[in-house]
């Protein structure tokens, strides 16, 4: 910590120049090795015959050929499309709707906001546990409604192969929609009221105000919400494990759970690495343009 003193002397000029970079270098080294080095390593493994352990026998694109012909991967990707699409759509719709309602000079707005947002502080494992038993037909919602006398009421989505993926959507929306609401609310608070006042004087209805003036101005908030939600959807792992563990059958497998089971339990590390590579590329396609525009703007 005394370098700064000696730095003023002539011999310390080099040190003085270099000190900031020296301070930054451990972090940079960690990131270069553990993010980029590891990405490269996994990428390389996806072209090898690794099974139980990493191995370096080159097999070209064989793992990708196998991956794309696997029914399990097909199911995982389809599930991701259904889950991700609905998740993003419902979160945005719910988030925008609640944000607009909360923006109407609501009494105790702060309190309501706190309630909407608290699920974001929970672990997906906690969320999964709560919803797993709440949606369980034996003890949860179905049993409760039946005990109220509606004996023909049925709600067994979590045990039903065709419907189980929607229970993941339900729990994930519950967890994140409040956050999306907060993003839209921040966007709404940034809108210039003068324009709205002018439009009101011209006799525009509230509906028209929102449709024509407010919502178009929320474009940046929509962009951020999309990027955040899309990358969360692709990375979804914990929630599936806690809620359904990929089942029933393979009904709720997603690429993240596929990668894990092929790599660590089925000893198909090459295929697992290939699936991880596909996940990374999908996320990069969404994140890189976003970060690029953000960093350029701030210059």
């Amino acid at each position: 910590m005394t370098q700064s003193v000696s730095a003023r002397k002539g011999s310390g000029d080099w040190l003085r120049e270099a000190l900031p970079k020296i301070v930054l270098s451990p972090s940079l080294a960690l990131v270069l090795i553990f993010v980029y080095g590891f990405i490269f390593f996994t990428f390389y493994l996806s072209f090898t015959d690794s099974r139980l352990l990493p191995s370096f026998g080159w097999v070209g694109a064989e793992n990708y050929d196998k991956l794309f012909s696997l029914r399990a991967w097909d199911i995982a990707v389809n599930n991701l499309l259904v889950f991700g699409g609905l998740y993003i759509l419902i979160c945005c719709a719910l988030g925008l709707g609640l944000a607009i309602l909360l923006d109407q000079k609501i009494r105790s707005e702060g309190f309501i906001r706190t309630i909407y947002l608290y699920p974001m502080a929970l672990s997906f494992i906690v969320t999964g546990t709560a919803w797993k038993w709440f949606l369980d037909p034996g003890i949860g919602l179905e049993a409760v409604v039946q005990s109220w006398g509606f004996t023909s009421f049925e709600f067994d989505w979590i045990k039903n192969r065709d419907m189980a993926i929607y229970t993941i959507v339900i729990a994930a929306v519950w967890q994140t929609s409040g956050f999306v609401m907060a993003m839209f609310l921040a966007g709404l608070r940034g809108i210039d009221n003068e324009v709205l006042k002018a439009a009101q004087i011209d006799g525009a209805s509230n509906w028209a105000l929102y449709r024509r003036i407010v919502i178009p101005q929320l474009r940046p908030a929509f962009m951020s919400a999309f990027v955040v939600l899309a990358h969360m959807a692709i990375k979804s792992y914990d929630l599936v494990i806690a809620l359904t563990n990929g089942g029933p059958g393979r009904a709720t497998e997603l690429p993240a759970t596929f990668m894990y089971s092929y790599t660590f339990t089925r000893n198909q590390m090459g295929i697992g690495a290939a699936s991880a590579t596909i996940m990374l590329m999908t996320i990069a396609a969404i994140i890189v343009p976003y970060l690029w525009s953000e960093l350029r703007e701030k210059k």
Binding site: V35, T42, K235, A256, I283
Partner: peptide
């Protein structure tokens, strides 16, 4: 990044 990419 999806951390699946660094697990192995």
């Amino acid at each position: 990044i999806p951390f699946q990419m660094v697990l192995i």
